[in-house]
Nucleic acid binder design. Structure first.
Length: 237
DNA sequence: TACGTCAATAGGGTAG
DNA sequence: CTACCCTATTGACGTA
């Protein structure tokens, strides 16, 4: 599997699957007029932010109508560029970095903090969407392979060529089928006489979860994900 | 006008 | 308790 950059400026972790292109769509919501007390939304004096008028005269009437009309901050291209640049270097900021960046951008430290929070959330959402897409495709291919194997089993059964035998991976001798069992969870064949199961390495799912866990974005995760096999009774697999 | 984007808030969790 | 993080949500704005 190749790792290709999808949107280098936005995502560090990317997953590439043959024929897969990711389209980002974010959930949105609509709601009524709920005005909050935002010190953050007060127009800064001499700042370089793009402040857009927020709410109409009716809105003000409905929501109190006290004080100057609220404005919504839109970061300038330069501010966004600097923030992105900083995000590429570090997904989290220490207080010193935050202060410096805020000073540099003529924003409040809280605004820088919020931007980084939202940026991390967007990154994670995109990652999740990509993983979801990938898992769907993987499921499809597994279903297809399962069908193919089922057909093969049927064909072999139809042939009726004596008791089935499996070659031992150790001695290359045929093993009696009675010593083989199927792990109900992972559906891999294991030997009851101590022979190791045939493992082709980590599954794509494991690759994904381990990638997610080791990604810098997950550095603040408190509890690592536990793979279900860790608690599975048939620890052989 | 519906929908996507994004700055911002609320609220819950955790480390120090 | 404080400061930080994450997640869910809100609401203004841009645009197809």
């Amino acid at each position: 599997m190749a790792i290709l950059p999808v949107t280098p400026s936005c995502l560090e972790l990317t997953i590439s699957v043959a024929g897969f292109t990711s389209s980002s769509s974010f959930p949105s919501s609509e709601g009524g007029c709920v005005m909050r007390d935002l010190d953050i939304n007060q127009v800064p004096s001499g700042g370089e932010e793009e402040w857009v008028m927020m709410g109409s005269a009716e809105d003000e009437e409905e929501c109190g109508g006290r004080g100057p009309p609220r404005k919504k901050l839109r970061l300038t291209k330069e501010q966004s560029r600097l923030l992105e640049e900083s995000f590429r270097e570090n997904h989290t900021l220490n207080p010193k970095q935050k202060e410096t960046l805020a000073l540099q951008l003529k924003l409040k430290p809280r605004q820088v903090e919020v931007w980084f929070q939202n940026r991390r959330a967007r990154t994670k959402l995109k990652q999740t969407e990509m993983e979801c897409e990938y898992l769907k495709r993987w499921f499809g291919s597994l279903t297809e392979e399962n069908r193919r194997l089922q057909r093969e089993v049927e064909e072999l059964r139809a042939m009726r060529v004596g008791p089935p035998t499996v070659m031992s991976p150790h001695s290359c001798e045929p093993m009696p089928a009675s010593t083989l069992t199927m792990c109900p969870r992972c559906e891999r064949v294991t030997s009851t006489n101590g022979a190791p199961s045939v493992d082709k390495g980590p599954t794509p799912l494991r690759a994904i979860t381990s990638m997610a866990f080791h990604h810098p974005n997950s550095m603040n995760r408190k509890t690592p994900p536990v793979h279900h096999h860790a608690r599975h009774p048939s620890a052989a697999c």
